[in-house]
Design a binder for these strands. Structure first.
Length: 418
RNA sequence: CGGAGCGUAGUAUAGUGGUAGUACGCAUGCAUGGGGUGUAUGUAGUCCGAGUUCGAUUCUCGGCGCUCCGACCA
């Protein structure tokens, strides 16, 4: 990709009212655009990152036997009434599209979660113990009428969510799958470069049991958690019970954290509301036991920026960076065009080697180009200039490190293909 | 949803009951050429509605929006 052709551009300044680090850097870097409070466009660069996050999530969730599907966002009132959630305050109700007052308005709620829809589907396909267990997930936009969106992508009114639902014949089978999901989540966050703490918290309306949240310790977080690094204990402040940690002598610490994932044992709440039942081996009709498991990819995107940046900009982990390498041409006067020619040749060679490269071919000042490269945070920065041509080398700098290396083209390709 | 603050150009601000100025940004040209360079020219604005008034960006009322703290929540 040539930088001169990117749909969006970086910007040098931004309103100081936008306080959070992720909003500042993502907006300035041209990754996202703000539409209204808590509502963002993912610009091409931001979408590239999101899709890398989603790819990792898909690989790990597919690996525990779940199938991907896609449910509607427009969900009729009757679904919410069945579960008793038509009246929740986060639901956006949408009209039938008529201004005619004689017609009923507000017949749909926009999907803020999908237990209702998946339950209505499950009822059609689960009849026997032979149909169980089943698990299905989607990655989809959720809508929530948040009273107070905040901190850029960390809390929005419209955001992306991976929601997984599982169906079991017994509590034991659910418990077993729940552990599998915990492992999958651990793999996902590890690959995303995020260090998570698994915290117990209350289950809200869903269940009397404890549920678990995957929390990333970070001052930008909205939750306060109590945790022990030694024994792995973690609890959300809401339900914090110090006696649960009495077997470990290590002192408990507390801190702010961002919740990037959560897992619930739903039990039979939705099975009963929607009548999801199966016949067991003895021919007895039993309610299906359910679990639900969420990860917010757009929130993860914001969290990664909160976690990995410096005063100049973002420092993307390799696994989610929009491009592997940022090729910066410092052509200067370059009256005979040989710097541009060399940069172009290297660009084509990298592309040919399936290396994702952003080529800064803009006619801009050195400072502008290098500062933009820092802001955008692509892990490997390669500079081609008269200096590097004279040395018959290429300059490589890893984003976040202070030193630069002069290496050969072959060495560069080897490094990038590792 | 409770509390606080703020709405004049993309950003930061000045100013005025008589139709808005500065700086930066942005765009274009020329010069420059390893950390946001210089210069010239250009670009763009009073959140919305009602009221008072001959006249409102300015005064009054209402709404809407944005940010921050709290509650709630992926």
């Amino acid at each position: 990709m040539k930088q001169s052709q990117l749909f969006a551009k970086t910007s040098r300044k931004l309103s100081e009212s936008e306080a959070s680090k992720n909003a500042q850097f993502l907006l300035r870097g041209g990754f996202i655009d703000k539409s209204s409070a808590g509502v963002y466009t993912l610009l091409p660069l931001g979408l590239r990152v999101l899709e890398k996050i989603n790819k990792i999530i898909r690989e790990e969730i597919n690996a525990i036997g779940a199938e991907e599907l896609l449910m509607p966002s427009l969900i009729q009132k009757k679904y919410w009434e069945k579960s008793g959630r038509w009246g929740v305050d986060v639901i956006y109700k949408t009209s039938t599209g008529t201004e005619n007052k004689d017609k009923k308005d507000f017949e749909y709620g926009l999907g803020w979660t999908h237990e209702e829809v998946i339950s209505a589907i499950a009822v059609k396909f689960i009849n026997s113990y032979k149909d169980l267990p089943k698990a299905a997930y989607q990655i989809q936009t959720k809508f929530r009428a948040e009273a107070r969106p905040q901190a850029g992508l960390l809390r929005g009114r419209e955001f992306s969510m991976k929601d997984l639902y599982s169906f079991h014949e017994s509590k034991e089978d659910l418990d077993n799958y729940y552990e599998k999901v915990i492992n999958a989540y651990k793999n996902i966050f590890k690959r995303l470069g995020l260090k998570t703490l698994i915290c117990e918290t209350g289950g809200g309306d869903f269940t009397k049991e404890y549920t678990h949240e995957f929390q990333v310790l970070n001052p930008a977080g909205e939750d306060t958690i109590f945790y022990c690094e030694k024994c792995g204990f973690g609890q959300n402040q809401e339900v914090y019970k110090p006696e649960a940690h009495k077997n470990c002598k290590n002192p408990i610490q507390s801190g702010r954290a961002i919740e990037v994932g959560n897992i619930f044992k739903l039990g039979i709440k939705f099975s009963e509301a929607f009548g999801i039942s199966f016949l067991n081996k003895n021919g007895e009709k039993k309610p299906v036991i359910m679990g639900s498991y969420g990860i917010g990819p757009t929130r993860v995107l914001g969290t990664i920026v909160e976690e990995f940046s410096d005063e100049y900009g973002i420092i993307w982990p390799e696994t989610v960076a929009p491009f592997q390498v940022h090729l910066v041409e410092l052509s200067g006067k370059d009256s005979d065009g040989k710097v541009t020619k060399a940069a172009m040749a290297l660009y084509e060679k990298l592309v040919k080697n399936d290396i994702e490269v952003l080529y800064d071919d803009r006619d801009a000042s050195t400072g502008e180009k290098l500062n933009d490269a820092d802001l955008m945070g692509i892990p490997n920065r390669v500079v081609i200039s008269e200096k590097t041509l004279a040395a018959k080398k290429i300059e490589l700098k890893i984003r976040g490190s202070k030193k630069t290396d002069l290496i050969s083209e072959a060495e560069l390709i080897k490094i990038l293909q590792k």
